[in-house]
Design a protein around this nucleic acid. Structure first.
Lengths: 140, 140
DNA sequence: AATTATTTTAGAACAATTCTACACTGGGCT
DNA sequence: AGCCCAGTGTAGAATTGTTCTAAAATAATT
């Protein structure tokens, strides 16, 4: 699903800034970025974009469902280009963040949603100390 | 384990402010509070304490292991008087937060910690939309 | 081209938290 | 008792990530 289609589906015009920022983020690699990271990436790529636009764009991408907001830290907001259901391994000392595929964890005993409520997401954060190692295949 | 003992064990003097704030928090009920909540509780209880002291004290309590910081939201930090391993049911619309006992969920498939790293915590947040079931409706 | 809606922007505003730098306390000492 | 002085408490300033504002730029529509 190309970016242009995603934007249109979400009712967002395919503007140069959105295409540029989208191009930085959606290149097939799963990324975890902050707004500042994106501003830096843009600057290095020679894309002139204000920080306000970076925030606007990231928020629009989240609303459009092509980017996911992850909350790990009160200091900064991370955005994840992997929008599938999955979990995170967070190295608190280094700040490194690794995806854990959603189907690699099974969670048993989840309470049933009461009437009038709905489970929007079940998010698991595995908080680690020490240094990350490149993990091999997790979910076989 | 009385508060006074906890404080001493942590190398914190049992000062009036700490005893007062601790008294508000540790009354046998599990509480989820923000720094602002604590400041309000103190004001209502006639305890004169600055917001800076509230923050200092909460952070000291966390360092002492008698309070737990929970991250659910980038806007505010919640503190949990339940320091045992457990999880959370978070109603995003209302902000209501319920504890889910640690032993009520079983999580299978957790990756093994690589050498040099250690799992510090596994935190599950069940994000809900809609309204929470009135468990012990705390209207008031 | 004129008109209108949307997007982009710089900088101000905001809110939660931390920092700073000084005032205060209270327990240990003589 | 009174004097220390490290630890504590405080007001207000500073910091920081994010959002808001209001105006300029751009794109779509007529």
């Amino acid at each position: 699903m190309p970016l242009l289609t995603q934007l249109q589906t979400a009712g967002l015009r395919a503007t140069p800034k959105r295409i540029a920022i989208g191009g930085l983020l959606f290149d097939g690699v799963d990324r975890h970025v902050t707004a500042d990271d994106v501003a830096d990436m843009a600057r290095k790529a020679g894309i002139k974009v204000s920080l306000a636009t970076v925030y606007n764009t990231l928020n629009q991408f989240v609303a459009a469902g092509i980017l996911k907001r992850i909350i790990l830290d009160t200091d900064r907001t991370y955005f994840d280009t992997n929008v599938s259901d999955h979990h995170h391994l967070f190295y608190e000392t280094s700040g490194d963040l690794l995806d854990v595929p959603g189907d690699s964890l099974r969670i048993e005993g989840l309470p049933a949603a009461p009437e009038g409520a709905r489970v929007r997401a079940v998010e698991v954060v595995i908080r680690m100390s020490g240094t990350p190692v490149s993990i091999g295949s997790t979910a076989g």
